[in-house]
Design a protein around this nucleic acid. Sequence first.
DNA 1: TACAAAAACTAACAATTGTTAGTTTAATAG
DNA 2: CTATTAAACTAACAATTGTTAGTTTTTGTA
Lengths: 190, 190
Amino acid sequence: MKITDRKAEIVAVSARLFKEKGYSAVTMRDIAQAMDIKAASLYNHIQSKQEILVLIIIEIAEEFTSVMNEIVNSNLSTLEKIEKVIQLHIKITLRNSDALACLNNDWMHLTDDQLSYFIKMREDYEQNFRKIIQEGIQNGQLKKSNQEVMVYAILSSLRTMYLWHSKSKGLDEKTLLKSFTSLYFKGLEN
Amino acid sequence: MKITDRKAEIVAVSARLFKEKGYSAVTMRDIAQAMDIKAASLYNHIQSKQEILVLIIIEIAEEFTSVMNEIVNSNLSTLEKIEKVIQLHIKITLRNSDALACLNNDWMHLTDDQLSYFIKMREDYEQNFRKIIQEGIQNGQLKKSNQEVMVYAILSSLRTMYLWHSKSKGLDEKTLLKSFTSLYFKGLEN
DNA sequence: TACAAAAACTAACAATTGTTAGTTTAATAG
DNA sequence: CTATTAAACTAACAATTGTTAGTTTTTGTA
């Protein structure tokens, strides 16, 4: 199946371009040029510009949703659950940071069903993470501080890891996990 | 001066629209419609779409730069300096979250001098924050963990506060500051 | 080698883009 | 009241947009 390969290539190239300038600022001619073909040729493989966006975002959103569900329904401790969430973000960031950038910045350009599907997944994801934090506060494993700040401060720094993780060397999965858990569990203070 | 008022209004309305869909996806006709005038009328007040973007981003970037410089050059303790940085982000987020969203997502659509000027400010800002963290590690006030993760995890969660701060009630300046400092200084763990 | 399918091409479209020119209305100061 | 200026308007432009139709080239297989 060559089609699938070429299609996947278009999606990957598009994700890289979308990361740089955003979905709206990237034209079909930009994507074509990056693949050394003409814009019209893209339509042998994809249906529309929209379809590219959907392919980039939805797959990765579903992965987040699915793994988060596993974590929440596991019988790990609160700290272990949080560690698993951190690990999930690190893994996907290292594997596909272009798609992640696109998910973060261009999800609002999804339309109709795909848009509401995405928003639903996103809300569920946040709600699940909130549940983990909430449980931890209740069972005394976590400090009694503002729950929403905990939820969003952590989530948003995990979500934007793609912006900086490649800037400095030696930030492999293990190092990132250790540093993140240290920061979020123990804090900065010595 | 009526011009200045009207111009400021255009900039404010634009920032709000840019926050929703991004600079590239918002047309001059969108902006005009939001102000109940025709697109051509905007040009009585502004020179170009680009100028709007510049006005939104540069002013706020300069404020960050300026206050960060004050903080770095002060003789506060490391923890106090970090607290001041957190406070800076909270204040600007509460005052002008639209512009902040624009700065975060659309800075790459600046051109030429303005673009390099912005990038320079951004790099300096990060470098200054890195310096604070570095000092803290050296003088023993901060834990010896990965410096870059500390820098970017904190900065990126502060930078994206505009995405969620208005979602839940009671998150005023004081509450945010207390919660952020608690999280980043002491961590989650009880 | 021949042939079918895949994947590229050229040319063009209708719609939308930022912007300009020229004109009319509204507001303000003498 | 009048003159000036600010700020709106209509109409249009040239360029760019995503996309389609029809055609040619490339590729893989029998």
